[in-house]
Amino acid sequence: MTMPAPTRASTPTSEGYNFAYLDEQTKRMIRRAILKAVAIPGYQVPFAGREMPLPYGWGTGGIQVTAAVIGPKDVLKVIDQGADDTTNAVSIRRFFARTAGVATTEATREATLIQTRHRIPELPLNERQILVYQVPIPEPLRWMEPRETETRKMHALEEYGVMHVKLYEDIARFGRIATSYNYPVRVDGRYLMSPSPTPKFDNPKMDRMAALQLFGAGREKRIYAVPPYTEVKSLDFDDHPFEVQSWDQPCALCGATDSYLDEVITDDRGGRMFVCSDTDHCRRRRDAQEEAAQ
C-alpha cells in the first residue's frame, strides 16, 4: 500500500459562505487573539467565539482557529484520537473541504495544518506546520477553583501552589502521580496551561516543538498558544519526576514500541490487542516494512 496523495476537494467552496466559513472580520478578530496568544505563551486570550454549525464540545474552538489561519494552499489533516477516520475527524475534514476547498491529507508529513483532538502525531512536526488543538476546558485550575474571577487572579499572581496539591494527593494515595491525560504544564516558566485532553505521553512532544501550537476553546471562548521552540514543562516534584505511559507489548500491526497504543477488544473472552493510536504512523511503518521485504 502506498501513501495516498493529498486529495483536492472536488466541489469548490460552498455557495453563500465565505472561504473557510467565517467572514473576514471574524477571522481578523480571531487572528488578533492568536497573535496575542503567541506573544504571551500559555496565556488564555478571551475571544468572541462564534456559533459554528457544529456543536460546542465537538471542536468549535479548533475549527475557528483553523478557519482563521487556513489559506487556499494549505494541506489539512484532521485527527481525533490519533486517527484520520474517526467520525468527528471525517466530519471536520469534510467541513473544510466543503467551505474552503483546500487539499486534505492523512499523511502527517504532507500536512501544513493539523487539527487534532486528544493526540499529537508521533512523527516530529516541523517549522512549516501548525498544530491546532481542540480544547474542551482551557482552565487547568478549574477543578481546584471553579470561579473564573479567582483563577484569573491566580494566573496573574502565579499562585499555582494548589496545582501541586492535586499531585501531592496522587502520590500520597497511589504512590505516584495518577493523572494520565490533560496533565498540567508550565509554559516558558510562566503560565500554567492545560495541554487539552492529550495523554501525558504526548507532553514531551510539546516541549520546544518546531511547529506553532494553537489551542482553541469555542464554548469557553479562549485561545492560547505555544510558539515554536518554547519550553513546556510538565509539573512534578523533585523526587517524583514526570514520566510517561509505556506498554508491555509492541503495536500488533507495525511492531512499534515507542508509540501510544490503543487497546482493541477482539472477542468476548478477554482477547485484546494493542495497536498504534496514530493511524498514519502505523501505516507508514507498515509500508516501509513491506518495501524493505520486497
Partner: peptide, 23 residues
C-alpha cells in the same frame, strides 16, 4: 484533600517542590 495536603499546601504555594520534604 488529605490532612497532609492541607499542611503541605502553604509550603507548595511558596515554592516547595520536594514531596519527601513536604511530607
Amino acid at each position: 484533600v488529605s490532612a497532609g495536603a492541607n499542611i503541605g499546601e502553604p509550603l507548595m504555594a511558596l515554592g516547595a517542590r520536594h514531596y519527601g520534604d513536604i511530607r
